[in-house]
Design a protein around this nucleic acid. Sequence first.
DNA 1: GCATATTTGTCCGTATGTATA
DNA 2: CTATACATACGGACAAATATG
Lengths: 231, 231
Amino acid sequence: MPSDRSTTAERVAEALRHRITDGDLRPGAQLSEERLGADLGVSRNTLREAFRLLGHDGLLVHHLHRGVFVATLEPADLVDLYRLRRLVECDAVRGANDPDAAVLALVAAEVDAADAAVAADDWTAVGTANMHFHQRLVQLAGSPRTDALMRRLLAELRLVFHVVASPRELHERYVRQNRALLEQLQRGDAAGAADELGRYLDDSQHQLLAAYRARSSPRPIGRLDAEAVAR
Amino acid sequence: MPSDRSTTAERVAEALRHRITDGDLRPGAQLSEERLGADLGVSRNTLREAFRLLGHDGLLVHHLHRGVFVATLEPADLVDLYRLRRLVECDAVRGANDPDAAVLALVAAEVDAADAAVAADDWTAVGTANMHFHQRLVQLAGSPRTDALMRRLLAELRLVFHVVASPRELHERYVRQNRALLEQLQRGDAAGAADELGRYLDDSQHQLLAAYRARSSPRPIGRLDAEAVAR
DNA sequence: GCATATTTGTCCGTATGTATA
DNA sequence: CTATACATACGGACAAATATG
């Protein structure tokens, strides 16, 4: 098994990231070094490196001498995530008075992709296009670190999405609003788009919080210790 | 050598983080696995885990089959950092209309610490207090993810500081302004403090950019390949 | 341009300590 | 409380890529 243009640990980390964000590995699940290493055909050392690569993204939590688990996000995390999300996204949009045409085309592409997915009744694809839409919006700011931050935030959000609701009820309502936002930007009304996006995100947050409450007992998947992450 | 309440890799990562932010390990320096492992008394595997832990903080860059190096930041990185910094800090301050008294006390403590350090003519300590001051400001937002983001940003900024100028010329002018900001917050004028902070940060950014330009040739410390970090 | 030395990448075996049944 | 399973950490080995002369 030779290498492409990346280390094995990086490829393993990417594979795990997809398994997590796709809902294959659910929150609370333990990632056993021995079993996962056997599954992926890599040594425990390499797998541990991959764990460390993913650790700072908030997707995995590390318990000393117990192993790594897929993170379980609570309502407080959701509120925290949306706080940063609102800040980053609205600022990027508000600053897009004269948006980069190439990036705006990428935004438009995701809006079209969402429409196509709706027509195909593929709600998972709608959700993916919606995530990409927001990633592209942030890209209007032209800031690598902001892009990286947004990627992390969206990865964590996907963790929530897979737990609380179906892709359809999560994303359907926003397909139309995304197009409205795009057209507002194309008209040069960045400030208006930013304001609209702020309301949009508030709405989304409340929808998710309601879904959380609907899950009667917020029972973690794994062991039921309510330990706070240290540091 | 048993463990405290953290893994060896985490302790090694923390030690390296301090060596970097303290300027002991300078930008561009290579971190040899063999030599560093011997120095710190840990195996290569453990050291590599520590490298991965630090990687996502932007302090280390990883070149395939070449090793890890202390990151070298260019003017574009500086601008990018300050963009996020301004966004995060000003938002935290602007939202502090009714600031948490305990956190505000921590802010005040750093202002006092800076004054004391000035009196002691300890400009490194002034710089540390200044960094902490801004970390505490952000803490007014009460958002764990924002706190973590700010920690990463400040760690990267320290990388710049150690390269372009002395602690005194970097921080002296802001000691007074920090106190002014604190008093503005104590008076309940969060919006005014946020505006002032914005000008403050613009000033700081321009000061650093000027220092960059003053370094005649922007020659990297290490090997002189202008390779872009992938992805 | 080529051969060599050095360093990283990756795996394996093993010993030890910790948490959980 | 003991036992078992698993994570932690080490050191050695070889392959692969890069840097050097």
